[in-house]
Design a protein around this nucleic acid. Structure first.
Lengths: 344, 344
DNA sequence: AACGTTGTTTGAAATGTTTCATAAGCTGTG
DNA sequence: CACAGCTTATGAAACATTTCAAACAACGTT
């Protein structure tokens, strides 16, 4: 430390008896400097406790070393798994990952994105509150790579990585139908969330194709995708007269399903005999529930990893083309829908 | 956009017909510039799509606008709740929060911290793999505010915020003893994790004070604090001959407890009648488990918030004094230990 | 002895802001 | 009209790096 100030390359140069440029070379192109001087410079750095100033580096070099992910809901483990996938890809590319959380608030999201642009991050991965928001396209047009995660971007101005949510809804309900259920509840909401709309839509589609009466697919709206809302849906479900009551429920995500599961068991229902439950996402806690939860699996880490690769391609490859990647979801059948637990 | 390059203050100044300094004033001291010119400058900014370059700002101003949290384990919701608390405090102080994840790997942690120092973040909050690691003290000595979260920092060179883990272990086991259990398993590990050591120590302490035979407190070591390890502990527990088998278990965290709970129920045990279970942390999923989990609550968000406040104080208050804040944990009794569910 | 080659080091310019001392315009006062 | 006192605007310096053309040194070839 040089009299309180944190030491700069200049201090290192003086202390090692070389020029500024040489110190820079030691950091960025060590192969061009002779072993002897390199040694000397490195010793000086260690001695002074030199820490390179990233702001100055970035300002001059014009390139940052960070990626950013703006996640939609920090309370949902699903997004952390996605983030983990991004982190792994970032680590491979020797970049840092800046994780922000919009908590489903559009204003907060915009504040975060704004700051990220000021930081000149290499690219922005985002699960937006509203993928149609014009300002996202605006950013992409400015030349900053943007990848939409878990939603399909509007108008092809950016890359996106998502799972086919309609298909997910289909296979969930098809599975329930196969188990012999003819009255099924669909639990999810609010409607403003695109994922919810599509999953519900998939459920309706297959229900119709199977020739089942539309009135026997009962939609139970929720105010959010949380465990608490799942419990509340359970109470409403219990309130339906036994004759009309569904024997199975498809929940728009696992948090809802876990809430519903808990409420039902607490109320003395046997799962799956009296109520079968399917969730969506297949978060880790799904398998760990007391009655392991059948769920529609999304390749969570894979989603993140793929998104990171797209953003990196866009950032570095001059003839990058925008892509809309769609992954295929997959049903993971567990005890919450299958009566005799086969080998689980 | 100015011929491909992203526009700078200089471009804005030219376009608005004012000097560099005036543009800067519009951004930083709007009150000193006349409404008319301010208007003109702002219009020019919007027109060109100007985005302030944070690197340059930081380089010149010498002060960054970000805080960082290096979390220990991204798969544990506990840390996300802590992060959420930090985020809220950061938002209040108009700072960004940079979240990193060491995944319990010391090398990765060091890489992250190194980068954060290069970024000149205002302060580093960290739940370290090893709180004794010399390099942390080294950083603090350099004048960068460091706050240890969920552990007590060594040697008083930094602030720390933690919960009294020994006390937590005590109240958990005391609760089990009160319920009449006289053979109790303590599930946790690895021993390298300080939190685990102290919780186990608390359990042993109170067991001895209650005058119960040491051999009836059975330690079941685990390789990690995960759901899977909890399940495996459950299998080992089941393998103990019935006469010697514990009737209750205290798990060093909720993930273990959830795994143990699931395994036990799956194996046909009734909880809490045949096996009572207490966890630690009181994560959200604890309450949502099929048999709601009794747990030792840590004030998770509060922990984060307090840590952020300490780091900010250290960063801004010249006569800051290091503090070791300790929060008191609290038992939340639920159905996994209490036979008749009183009002839950 | 002159020359080219190769490997190493240097010095100055450039990056986009903020800051601060100074200048320029006004307005009202003696 | 001169001058003080404001309010606003300006221009240059400073921040810590990287980059790159140019200088230098050492050495073997012709």
């Amino acid at each position: 430390m040089v009299n309180g100030r944190t030491p700069s390359v200049k201090d290192v140069a003086r202390s090692a008896g070389v020029s500024l440029g040489t110190v820079s070379n030691v950091m960025n192109r060590p192969e061009v400097v002779s072993p002897a001087t390199r040694e000397r410079v490195e010793r000086a750095m260690a001695e002074l406790g030199f820490v390179r100033n990233e702001s100055a580096r970035q300002l001059r070099a014009g390139t940052s070393r960070t990626l950013a992910y703006v996640m939609l809901d920090g309370t949902n483990p699903f997004f952390h798994d996605v983030a983990q996938g991004i982190e792994l890809a970032a680590e491979d590319a020797d970049l840092s990952l800046f994780i922000c959380n919009s908590n489903s608030r559009a204003e907060r999201e915009e504040v975060h994105v704004d700051r990220l642009m000021q930081q000149r991050v290499q690219g922005i991965l985002i699960t937006p509150v509203n993928p149609e928001a014009g300002y996202l396209a605006e950013i992409a047009r400015r030349g900053i790579p943007v990848v939409i995660v878990d939603r399909v971007g509007a108008g092809g101005v950016f890359c996106s990585v998502a799972v086919d949510d309609v298909l997910g809804g289909r296979i969930a309900v098809e599975h329930l139908a196969e188990q012999g259920h003819t009255r099924v509840a669909v639990v999810g909401g609010p409607d403003s969330i695109g994922q919810v709309r599509e999953r519900v839509q998939g459920a309706r589609q297959i229900w119709e194709e199977l020739g089942l009466p539309p009135d026997d697919l009962i939609y139970l709206p929720t105010a959010a995708l949380t465990v608490a809302e799942g419990r509340s849906a359970g109470e409403r479900l219990a309130g339906i007269p036994a004759r009309r009551r569904p024997t199975a429920a498809f929940c728009a995500n696992d948090l809802l399903a876990l809430g519903l599961l808990q409420q039902s068991i607490g109320a003395g229902l046997r799962v799956p005999e009296e109520l079968a439950i399917v969730g969506f996402d297949d978060i880790e806690f799904a398998a760990a529930a007391a009655v392991p939860l059948t769920s529609v699996r999304q390749p969570r880490q894979e989603l993140g990893r793929a998104a990171a690769q797209l953003v990196l391609d866009e950032a570095t490859n001059p003839d990058h083309e925008h892509q809309q990647l769609t992954f295929v979801p997959e049903l993971v059948a567990r005890a919450s829908t299958v009566v005799r637990s086969r080998g689980y």
